[in-house]
Design a binder for these strands. Structure first.
Length: 486
RNA sequence: GGUUACGUGGCCGAGUGGCUAGGCAGUGGUCUGCAACACCAUCUACGGCGGUUCGAAUCCGUCCGUAACCUCCA
């Protein structure tokens, strides 16, 4: 079938037909997290959205190289010359080496994304592993005259760049507006203009993370790592660059400028931005503390939600909104998704038992085509889910004898509904055998056994202990009560 | 203040110049020892005011409201 994929490109503010630079090969770069604290659900939304995009591209048959960085070099907490970087600060607070902080939160990040059933990217490079590349790019930009050295630091000359290129093309900003809107911050005297951004920063005496360079012992500017790593692994020009909306300006704008200044080419063909996840109508953000951690949501150990939610339910909930829309988090909305998710999964489980007929009572091919059409329209997962529910209704009708399906159509529908649900949306059946379900279950069993013992019904009490033991669970009676273990 | 989005039924959330989004909740049924689950059917809509049009919730203007970015943030 013909599959024309349309992607909303932030650069043109329009949906554009997707044509990879190299036939069948796709290069995709997504800005990863700064690993100085736990990832919150807002962060997760972006990575789950791009995971689905990655999955669909592969499902269409593209060979995708998906690069997502880990920002493990400390960056300053604000734009002032002096200040502490986030990772060093956290290291001091927790009395750890900066790299211990990095390791801890990187592992946590991976664990959470695995719970959401995200596929790992093809390459996950770190900023500290690419200091040399960043220094090389800085040299190139200096050589081409788009940067200047000042007191051991190197800054990108935005106004110079803007003479020949268009700084602000991605975010729709004009350089004059930016200048007039800039407040004068203390200690910015090193820069020619407040718009200029650091390519290399000289380290202050107490800055822990530091590397030698031709200009000073220091550390790279925040925007530079993405340019260095995307260029290294995807080339001077690549297909898709993604990230959260909040990175559009200045981060991605600066990346375009750095790429263009160092290679003479615009680095990215399609810029994609995911919208914010909100809590109480406000953006989830580490700095404001308006956050919810995935673990808190999975365990139910939080004040905001009524009960725990399985990662697959949360993923399904996110898929019910388009990636470019703001999505608000609430118990009420999650509950609705949980029921919908179960309904979809039940129908898929019922699939093998359906009776096949000689004819189908609906046009199965066009229903299946609509799965593709939804995703081809800028990865419209909510429409896809609506179409999947159409299939669910059809499946239930067949079960009730109110509709029929032919053998061929059955094979087609089974194949596509499972492919789109599991391979594309990245959902999965909830494994009911994990300990989270055992815990409340054992509580009930122990309560019943306690009752039996109280009634001196030791036959029942022993029966329970023996049978549970056969199932691999040991019950221990202690003075404080009974406990269990696997 | 500047820039950019958005405002859809009880809730969440798509889409669109005229043809049912979908999920949840509600209501009525089927099933069931009772209940829950599941399944079937079904109601409520496009922020206010103008304009363009045969026709707009969909285009334009304006007003009101909300959010994001302009400082680190997915």
């Amino acid at each position: 079938m013909t599959n024309t994929l349309y992607i909303y490109n932030t650069l043109s503010a329009n949906k554009e037909e997707f044509k990879p630079l190299n036939k069948d090969l796709v290069g995709m770069y997504v800005c990863g997290p700064t690993v100085y604290s736990d990832v919150h659900l807002g962060n997760c939304r972006t990575f789950i959205s791009f995971d689905t995009i990655y999955r669909y591209l592969m499902y269409l048959g593209y060979k995708v190289r998906y690069v997502r960085n880990i920002t493990d070099a400390g960056h300053l907490e604000n734009d002032a010359d002096e200040g502490e970087d986030k990772i060093s600060k956290k290291a001091r607070l927790e009395q750890l080496e900066p790299m211990e902080i990095v390791q801890k939160y990187t592992l946590g990040f991976h664990k959470v994304l695995r719970a959401f059933n995200n596929l790992p990217p093809s390459i996950e490079p770190t900023a500290t592993g690419h200091i040399i590349e960043q220094i090389e790019i800085t040299k190139k930009i200096l050589d081409k005259g788009f940067a200047y050295e000042s007191n051991g630091s190197v800054y990108f000359d935005v106004e110079k760049y803007n003479q020949t290129e268009n700084y602000g093309e991605l975010s729709g900003r004009k350089i004059e507006d930016l200048i007039s809107g800039t407040r004068a911050l203390d200690g910015q005297s090193e820069k020619k203009s407040p718009l200029d951004f650091a390519l290399w920063k000289k380290a202050s005496p107490y800055h822990i993370m530091r590397w030698p360079s031709p200009w000073s012992v220091g550390f790279p500017g925040w925007h530079l790592e993405c340019t260095a790593m995307s260029t290294k692994y995807l080339g001077k020009q690549f297909d898709i660059h993604g990230g959260g909306m909040d990175l559009k300006f200045p981060h991605h704008e600066c990346e375009i400028a750095q790429g263009c200044a160092s290679t003479g080419k615009k680095p990215v063909k399609y810029w994609m931005h995911t919208n914010m996840l909100t809590l109480n109508g406000k953006k989830m953000s580490k700095s404001t503390g308006n956050t919810l951690l995935p673990e808190e949501l999975f365990s139910g150990n939080n004040k905001l939600m009524d009960k725990p939610y399985h990662p697959m339910v949360v993923r399904f909930f996110m898929m019910q909104a388009h990636y470019r829309s703001v999505l608000d988090f609430s118990s009420e909305a999650l509950n609705a998704s949980e029921k919908g998710f179960n309904k979809l999964m039940t129908a898929i489980k019922d699939l093998p038992q359906l009776t096949k007929s000689t004819q189908s009572s609906i046009d199965v091919q066009s229903l299946v085509d609509s799965f593709y059409q939804s995703m081809n329209d800028d990865f419209n997962t909510p429409i896809l889910i609506a179409k999947l529910f159409e299939a669910v209704k059809y499946i239930n009708h067949i079960k009730d004898g109110k509709a029929t399906i032919s053998k061929n159509d059955f094979d087609l529908l089974s194949d596509k509904i499972t492919a789109f649900t599991f391979d594309v949306l990245g959902l999965n059946f909830i494994d009911k055998t994990d300990e989270s379900i055992l815990e409340p279950l054992m509580k009930i069993i122990l309560t019943l056994r306690k009752q039996a013992k109280k009634n001196k019904d030791y036959t029942t009490a022993d029966y329970i202990r023996d049978k549970v033991s056969e199932a691999g669970i040991t019950i221990k009676d202690t003075r404080e009560g009974s406990t269990w273990s696997l």
